[in-house]
Simulated assay, not measured.
Amino acid sequence: MFGLFGKKEGKAGEDRVAECQKKKDWAGLAKAYYEMGVSAMEAGDLEHAQLWLHRSDTIYSADDDVYEKVGDKIADDCSDRIGRLEAEEGLLYNAVPAEISEKAEELSEPQVRIWGLLSAARLAALGKRLSGIPGCEVLGELGWAVDMMARSLQEPPTQEEYQHLMDVCNGLYALNGKPGYWCGQIDVPGGAPFQVFDLNGMMGVEQELSGFIDSHLRLIAALSQGVEDPAAAAESDIVGCTLLPDYYVRTGGGRLEEVPQIRAELERIQSDYEFVCDGLTWEKVGQRIAAYQALDILAM
């Protein structure tokens, strides 16, 4: 499944991507990823199709000029293919979020929010490392953001803290429109380099983080005004974002469900679910968050 191309064709695809990145030819990069995605889809390799087509969509959707150069024909076909992939129940990309959503229905709103905070905490160490890439500095704020959101569930934040969290939210939302997101990478001890673009899976980790923080900001505002805001309701989409499937698909890690790091994350997600169901205390939540913020989720 993970031998998407023959050696010659695979090298050609990699070379084309590298050349487009070097020249900052973003339309060319979007087209290259689109063609790689189409080839994968036609070969029945749906995970690579998911990876490459979503990358193409992210690039041309971020800039009107790039979109114009890519053209409606490619963009429309890419969107259509992504829609078909989203209907594939057997893909981990779809199956895990569906299961998480089903479990979340059994939880109260505060439990869902804390479940999400625990997952966000596990992204803090990776975010700190990625923040050294130009344009990706906001990822270094994840640890602070998680701590602040946890505190704000116990006592109101200051205006400065609220504004800072809003800045983080906005910075995360804008991240996937930056070249650093499309080209930057860090070394991984004992493994292949991790590309910032590997965050693009699961509907975009940084986008889910932004949405999660946005709902929290709305909650804080609603509580301060003594009103209810339906948009402040906690969502469970962030919970599965720690799986980082794009990284393991791109680097040929094998069947996703059998990748050790993904299996470990699935176990943590289940453990966190049981944790939030079992008599929460802020002391226990704080301890779990602190432990997760020190965790390297890419480690074997």
Rank of each mutant, 00 (worst) to 15 (best):
Phe2Ser: 13
Phe2Asn: 15
Leu4Asn: 12
Glu14Val: 13
Arg16Met: 07
Ala18Phe: 12
Lys23Met: 01
Glu35Leu: 10
Met36Asp: 03
Ala40Arg: 03
Ala49Gln: 00
Trp52Glu: 04
Ser61Gln: 07
Ile74Pro: 00
Leu85Val: 04
Ala95His: 09
Pro97Thr: 03
Ala98Ile: 00
Leu107Gly: 00
Glu109Pro: 00
Pro110Gly: 01
Gly116Phe: 07
Ile133Leu: 05
Leu139Lys: 08
Gly143Glu: 04
Met148Phe: 15
Ala150Ser: 10
Leu153Ala: 15
Leu153Glu: 15
Thr158Val: 12
Asn170Val: 14
Tyr173Pro: 05
Cys183Arg: 15
Pro193Trp: 09
Phe197Tyr: 14
Leu209Thr: 03
Ile213Ala: 02
His216Cys: 00
His216Arg: 00
His216Ala: 00
Leu217Met: 01
Leu217Cys: 01
Ala231Cys: 07
Ala232Cys: 01
Ala233Cys: 05
Gly240Val: 08
Leu243Cys: 06
Tyr248Val: 03
Val249Asn: 02
Gly253Ile: 01
Gly253Phe: 02
Leu256Arg: 05
Leu256Lys: 04
Leu266Thr: 12
Arg268Glu: 11
Ser271Trp: 14
Val276Leu: 08
Gly279Asn: 14
Thr281Gly: 04
Trp282Asn: 09
Arg288Asn: 08
Ala291Ile: 09
Tyr292His: 15
Ile297Glu: 05
Ala299Tyr: 10
